[in-house]
Amino acid sequence: MPKVEIYTKMFCPYCVRAKRMLADKGVAFEEYDITMGGPQRAEMIQRANGRTTVPQIFIGETHVGGSDDLVALERRGKLDPMLAG
């Protein structure tokens, strides 16, 4: 299974939605809380091609995007194959 990373902020309902979806699938993920900014926020923006909203989700080296993008992958049946590697 590829490494799953998610950049989040406190009190973000979209972050909660994305994390819940991954958890419901039994997917372990590494979470980076960028509520206070810092170097991880800059890292996220660079990795996400300038996107500044949260969450930003990465599966392996693939930038998935945000919560809506994750849900769209699931609806199209493409999320499970990505998670399987």
Rank of each mutant, 00 (worst) to 15 (best):
C15Y: 13
K3S: 06
R20N: 13
G37K: 12
D24H: 05
E43C: 01
R51A: 09
I45W: 03
P81M: 05
I59S: 05
D68A: 12
M21V: 11
R76G: 00
M10G: 09
I6M: 11
F11R: 15
I59V: 15
V16K: 08
I45D: 02
A42S: 05
G38P: 04
I6L: 11
A84Y: 11
D33K: 04
P39G: 10
D80E: 14
A72K: 01
P2S: 08
T53L: 12
R51D: 00
F11S: 12
R41I: 06
A23W: 02
D80K: 03
E43N: 06
A18D: 05
C15D: 15
P55V: 00
L83N: 04
Q46T: 15
F58W: 10
V64A: 08
R76H: 02
M10L: 15
V27Y: 02
P81D: 02
R76K: 11
K19Y: 06
Y32V: 09
R75K: 15
R75T: 08
G26S: 10
Q40W: 04
P39K: 13
R20D: 11
T8A: 07
F58A: 02
P2Y: 05
L70W: 10
G37A: 09
G50A: 04
G26R: 08
Q40E: 14
H63F: 10
E31R: 01
T8N: 01
G26D: 04
I57G: 04
F11P: 10
M82H: 07
P55Y: 03
P81F: 01
V4I: 13
K9M: 15
K9A: 15
G37C: 03
N49M: 10
K25L: 12
C15T: 12
M82L: 15
K25H: 02
L73Y: 03
L83Q: 08
C12V: 14
M1V: 05
